[in-house]
């Protein structure tokens, strides 16, 4: 005989935990979706290059220009 008592209290806790899981998953989906929508709208990757860790081509070009001007 299984030693297992299913009380209404357990059902309520389960509903609360599953509900919280659904809310958190929805939140992740919202943040992800918003990120995709906002980034896709820019069209030009250089418009958001300042927000990642890749080389910033705009700044690199500026630096090259500045270096050229310094050269006698």
């Amino acid at each position: 005989m299984a030693i297992y008592v299913e009380h209404e209290l357990h059902a309520r806790r389960r509903s609360r935990n599953l509900g919280m899981l659904a809310v958190l998953l929805a939140f992740v989906a919202i943040v992800f979706g918003m990120t995709i929508v906002k980034l896709a709208r820019t069209g030009d990757p250089s418009a958001f290059e300042g927000f990642d860790h890749d080389i910033r081509y705009g700044l690199a070009a500026e630096a090259e220009r500045a270096a050229g001007e310094d050269t006698p």
Binding site: H7, E8, L9, A11, R12, R13, S15, R16, M20
Partner: peptide, 16 residues
């Protein structure tokens, strides 16, 4: 003792 604790809320109570 379980019966004294059945007032615990379910998810629907928070939605309400």
């Amino acid at each position: 003792s379980l019966d004294t604790e059945v007032r615990e809320a379910g998810f629907g109570d928070y939605v309400e």
